[in-house]
Write a protein that binds this DNA or RNA. Structure first.
Lengths: 105, 105
DNA sequence: ACCCGATATCGAGACATATACATATTCGTA
DNA sequence: TACGAATATGTATATGTCTCGATATCGGGT
């Protein structure tokens, strides 16, 4: 059985979805960003310094990665006083994490 | 509800899984490669020239993308005479495709 | 052995990304 | 308004990736 039972997308839908998804996957294709994602999945919203502390990243590096993921629609951002909380914004990103865990046993 | 019910991975398991998965996601994070993946999901194994024809890619470009995905363990490769058939080798890649279709309606 | 179609590899130029460090901005508070 | 902690941005260098065109290899038929 070579295939599955879903219909292919229309060309336009594919193009839209493919473009957006490719950008997202490309962004997720980085060890540090996957670690951040994993952390956020388990702990919920975290501040930049939480993440920078947990993962031993330079503050600037943490901030850069978080910004990137936010730009791609992967993370949400919420300011509370002097702190900025990042959290998962996209259920699709969580699905990708599922794949990781499955293969990691 | 900030989180989910799974336990975090151990550091070593995460590192392994994260490394491997990051490489795979990075590879999938390219519009052309996603298109190829979509095609293979719906049509099963295809030759290089099938793909090069369907997607209007230069033959060399198609071959390069296919090789890349094979190196990452995403695709399988089978020679039959002068033709080479590529197909999906990794169920995780299919999961990623699910995410695309969900959001594409 | 030779040819031809199918596939793979190579090299170059353009372009994007990673990393690190310095510096800037923002916000609460004194 | 001036300070300090939290966050963000800028710049430079190194490294990687994309694309394209040219060329090489591989396998089957004659």
């Amino acid at each position: 059985m070579p295939s599955n039972d879903r219909k292919p997308l229309t060309a336009e839908a594919l193009e839209r979805a493919v473009g957006e998804t490719a950008r997202m996957l490309k962004c997720l294709g980085h060890p540090t960003r996957l670690q951040i994602l994993d952390l956020l999945e388990h702990r919920g919203e975290l501040t930049v310094s939480d993440i920078h502390g947990e993962l031993n990243l330079e503050q600037a590096v943490a901030s850069q990665h978080l910004s990137l993921m936010r730009d791609k629609g992967i993370l949400s951002r919420r300011r509370e006083g002097v702190h900025v909380y990042y959290g998962l914004a996209n259920p699709r990103a969580s699905k990708v994490l599922e794949c990781i865990r499955e293969s990691a046993g």
